[in-house]
């Protein structure tokens, strides 16, 4: 996740990382990690959340951006088997594709590169 600030709207943080900021902590599916101070007025304090979730933060001071790594708190890439449906994907023709329109069907998601 590329950030221009270390305070991010909770909904944006959730959409990209899959982790929801809740009063009980940072949650993904049924897994919650206590994170006091991570949620403040609807914003995620990235430094606090990242520390609790084991997310490395890389800062490029020349360009004023941060890159947030994936959570390592559970030791696995997935903390839950609940799939996160991105709001919109771009298809091969550059058009928006509503991934959620596939709900209720079996989905195979394939990643491929030309090199």
């Amino acid at each position: 996740m590329i950030l221009n600030s270390l305070r991010v709207p909770a909904a944006e943080f959730s959409a990209v990382t899959g982790w929801d900021a809740k009063p009980e902590g940072m949650c993904r599916g049924e897994v919650c990690v206590p994170a006091p101070g991570a949620l403040d007025n609807g914003q995620v304090n990235v430094e606090v959340a990242a520390a609790r979730l084991g997310m490395p933060v890389v800062h490029d001071s020349d360009h004023g951006v941060w890159s947030l790594g994936a959570a390592t708190a559970t030791g696995r890439t997935l903390a839950t088997a609940v799939a996160r449906f991105p709001s919109t994907l771009i298809d091969a023709m550059g058009r928006g594709f509503d991934f959620a329109s596939l709900r209720g069907r079996r989905i195979i998601m394939i990643a491929w590169a030309s090199w």
């Binding site: 997310m55 490395p56 933060v57």
Partner: peptide, 26 residues
Amino acid sequence: MTPDEVVAASRPTSNDTSLAGACFAM
């Protein structure tokens, strides 16, 4: 797979691999 099997079969992650991902994304 069951949900528990899916989580267990997902790629192990560590601070180094996650930091590598953050560097690659940057």
